[in-house]
């Protein structure tokens, strides 16, 4: 276990973390503000990846691919909110889970019908296909770009929610929808805006992970589960919580998978370690979630009235 390897795995963890944040931000806002459980959030991630990959293959422009993925997923989110989900907001969580699980099946099948059951290939854009040298080791510049873009979006989201007029209304609307409506704000459209924004961020996460993960039907589900873990650890409805929890989950998961087998070998016999290491590594974040829930049932940064930190 060299320092270089540790550092590169740490960066991989950060990169997974910012992708998870892009997904978790939308999911946690929608849950916090509308009290809506949207399992189809992973499908929006998948759609983003497909929209992006298809656009990139056609136009060879990664900028256009990002635009197509973000706007496309945002539009699908907007249509979902207006036409499919609006009846579900007042129903209980189990109904929401069942209906949005149905949407997962629908979207996976739709993608299969359009693009086929296999995975489609998305190249790393030329401009970012190099590696960067830091501290004597090389790291792919594309993964650096993901980290940078994720952090930039996090900052932008923070400014939007904390500083702008619309952010103010979103924060107040989360806890006092009646009051915000009585001030003359169409709370339905505010919710739609939040939903579409969350969908666009999921689409962005999808297209950015396109070149490093496989773009295939059902790719949204594993990442959805990680995202749910993130928003529970961070505190439902809390953007700030989602940010820290996403980085923690990304790093813990990546480092665990990279080093747990080695660490286990130091404790157990090789055979036992090889069997238990990967298993334990994949359990790490759930153990961490259980620990957080035991100590802070509301999550690390529970959302409170007024500020959706």
């Amino acid at each position: 276990m060299t320092a270089q390897l540790a550092l590169s795995q740490l960066l991989n963890g950060l990169q997974l973390g910012v992708l998870l944040f892009l997904l978790a931000a939308g999911l946690t806002l929608v849950f916090g503000i509308m009290s809506f459980v949207n399992l189809a959030h992973g499908s929006l991630y998948m759609l983003g990846a497909y929209f992006g990959a298809a656009t990139f293959a056609k136009t060879d422009s990664f900028t256009l691919a990002i635009l197509a993925a973000t706007v496309g997923a945002g539009l699908v989110g907007l249509l979902l909110d207006r036409f499919a989900l609006t009846k579900l907001y007042t129903r209980d969580h189990l109904d929401q889970v069942l209906a949005t699980f149905g949407l997962i099946l629908f979207f996976n099948e739709l993608i299969r019908m359009i693009w086929g059951p296999g995975s489609i290939f998305m190249q790393v854009p030329d401009a970012l296909s190099q590696t960067v040298d830091i501290f004597g080791f090389t790291y792919p510049s594309y993964r650096f770009a993901i980290i940078g873009a994720g952090l930039a979006v996090a900052l932008g989201l923070y400014l939007l929610i904390q500083k702008t007029r619309v952010g103010m209304l979103i924060r107040a609307g989360a806890t006092h929808p009646h009051m915000v409506a009585s001030l003359g704000v169409n709370i339905k459209w505010l919710n739609t805006l939040v939903f579409a924004l969350g969908a666009a961020l999921a689409g962005l996460a999808g297209v950015m992970s396109g070149p490093i993960m496989s773009v295939q039907p059902g790719m949204g589900e594993p990442v959805l589960i990680l995202t749910l873990v993130v928003i529970i650890i961070g505190g439902l409805g809390s953007i700030r919580g989602a940010f820290y929890a996403a980085l923690i989950v990304g790093v813990v998961d990546t480092l665990g998978r990279a080093f747990m087998p080695t660490i286990m070998r130091g404790i157990f016999e090789r055979n036992t370690a090889d069997a238990a290491g990967p298993a334990l590594a994949s359990m790490l974040i759930y153990l961490f979630m259980a620990l957080v829930l035991a100590l802070k049932p509301q999550g690390l940064f529970p959302a409170t009235a007024g500020a959706t930190r």
């Binding site: 103010m168 924060r171 107040a172 806890t175 006092h176 009646h178 009051m179 409506a181 009585s182 001030l183 003359g184 704000v185 169409n186 709370i187 409170t304 009235a305 007024g306 500020a307």
Partner: peptide
């Protein structure tokens, strides 16, 4: 709707205070 009436100029206060506590 509530917001449409508000936009026509109807403003109200509530029996139970509805304020964003941390604002």
């Amino acid at each position: 709707s509530v917001f449409a009436r508000a936009n026509l100029g109807l403003a109200r206060t509530y029996q139970i205070t509805q304020l964003a506590k941390e604002f």
